[in-house]
Each structure stands twice: as C-alpha cells, then as structure tokens.
C-alpha cells in the first residue's frame, strides 16, 4: 500500500484552510458534505425546537377537537392532584403532533406490501396517525349518537364517557371504519406524551405533571444532591423554556 508523501500532506494542509466543502451542489437541507483538516464549526448552528403557539387547530376540525378534548379530559381527569388533560393542553399537543412529521409517519418504513403479521412483528398497518384519528373520532361519535340517543361523545355525562373509553380499551366496542383497539392505544399514548412532555410542545401546562410526580424537568446538574439519599429534592421543575416566574413563558 502506498503511504502518502510529505508534499502531499502539506498540499492537503493548505487545502484544509477551507475545512468544510460542500461536495455536490444542491438546495437540499441534508447536503452530502466533506469535512477535513479541522472540526467543522459555525456559530448558531443548533437546531432548537419550535415552541407550540396557541391559536387555531392545525389538524382537528371543530367537531373533532370537541371530541378529543373530552377524551383527554377523562384520560387525565381534573382532581386534587392536577388540572385535567384539556386544560393541560393535551389536545393542542396532539393537534400539533399530527400536523408535524409524526402525523404521517414520515420517519417510518412505509413501503408495501402490507401484511397483518404476528404481534411480535410490530406495526404493519399502512394507516397513518392522521387517518387513524380522522376515522376513529368520527366513528366514535357515530357510535355515541346511535347508542346515546343522538348525543356525541363530548355531550355524554362523565360516567358515560368513562364507560365508553373502558369499552374501547377492552375491545367490547367495535367501531366501524376504525381498528378500535389500535385507535384507543394511539390516543392514550399521545395523551400521556402531551401530559408529560416538555411544555414547549403544547401540553403539560405550567409543568403540571412534573409538579405532580416530583420530576424536576430540564435541570442538568444534580452533583450537589447525589449524596443526599432519601431526601426530597428541594428545587421546583424547569422547562426548556424556563419557568413562569422567570418572566418567560414557562
């Protein structure tokens, strides 16, 4: 094997003064790049999350929003431990998630052919979360109107809502046009994500869930407290956006 010569090295060192070269021109955000000679670095090159802003629904229709708000408010009911899922922002969280890459499974392998498979082979359906919510919420309201003399899910009494959700969970209701069990599991998963994720994504208002369980959030240094065994951690939680009493939007 030929080892590179000294003159070749110095030529390359010279070239390295332009350390990052774009190999191949393109307007794409994920360029193929070549790096040599030094650590690539440019100021402010980070990729921070974009805070969810209040405002109109991005995915849900008015009717869908009413239904999902009612659902998240039973999954996480208001009680002496916390506000309910609706006030915590779980429906807004789900709306913004469905409007983003999650809603269309952009990151997943969605090539066919699609087959049912065994449970241990995992997700095999071509149905996207956006489609599942659209069909599932409509089918749920249809079921409720048929069963409860014309009332949609959000118009049911709270014990009735709980009963319907329990029946969705245990499979004793079979909604038309929707894989009922998968739909329920998706809603449950997304509601919990909204309740426990950083408030920057629209749920967990005022870090309500973190205060409830005692999670300090986005703190990054516990060295002073590692050795304080079996003692409550004294500081309140903090979000990526900070905390309300900092004057920010936490």
């Amino acid at each position: 094997m030929k080892k590179i010569s000294g003159s070749s090295l110095s030529r390359r060192q010279f070239l390295a003064s332009t350390a990052v070269s774009i190999l191949f021109t393109s307007t794409s955000g994920s360029l193929a790049r070549s790096f040599s000679g030094q650590l690539p670095w440019s100021p402010f090159a980070g990729d921070p999350p974009t805070p969810v802003r209040p405002g109109p629904w991005l995915f849900f229709t008015h009717d869908e929003a009413q239904t999902i708000e009612a659902i998240v408010d039973r999954i996480i009911p208001a009680d002496d431990l916390s506000i309910g899922g609706k006030d915590a922002g779980c429906a807004v969280f789900i709306d913004r998630q469905l409007a983003g890459f999650f809603g269309n499974f952009e990151r997943l392998y969605m090539k066919g052919p699609f087959a049912k498979g065994f449970p241990q082979q995992g997700l095999q359906s071509p149905i996207l979360p956006t489609q599942r919510y659209r069909a599932g919420l409509a089918a749920l309201d249809d079921y409720c109107r048929t069963t409860f003399s014309g009332r949609a899910f959000s118009a049911l009494a709270l014990p009735e809502q709980d009963k319907v959700l329990q029946e969705l969970e245990n499979g004793s209701i079979d909604l038309d046009d929707a894989d009922t069990k998968t739909f329920f599991e998706l809603v449950l998963q997304n509601t919990m994500e909204g309740f426990f994720a950083d408030p920057i994504y629209g749920g967990n208002k005022d870090m309500v869930s973190w205060k409830m369980i005692g999670f300090p959030g986005a703190r990054y240094d516990y060295r002073d407290f590692v050795g304080n065994h079996n003692q409550p951690y004294p500081l309140p939680p903090v979000s990526i956006m900070g905390r309300g009493d900092w004057g920010g939007k936490g």
């Binding site: 090295l9 190999l23 070549s34 790096f35 040599s36 000679g37 650590l39």
Partner: peptide
C-alpha cells in the same frame, strides 16, 4: 474526533 478531524490525511463524507 477533536484529534482526528484536525488531521490533513483524514476526510469524512456525510449523508
């Protein structure tokens, strides 16, 4: 990487 990337006889191509 802080050492490797400074070497003129190394190149990394990403994506």
């Amino acid at each position: 990487l802080p050492v490797l990337m400074r070497k003129p006889n190394f190149e990394c191509r990403t994506n």
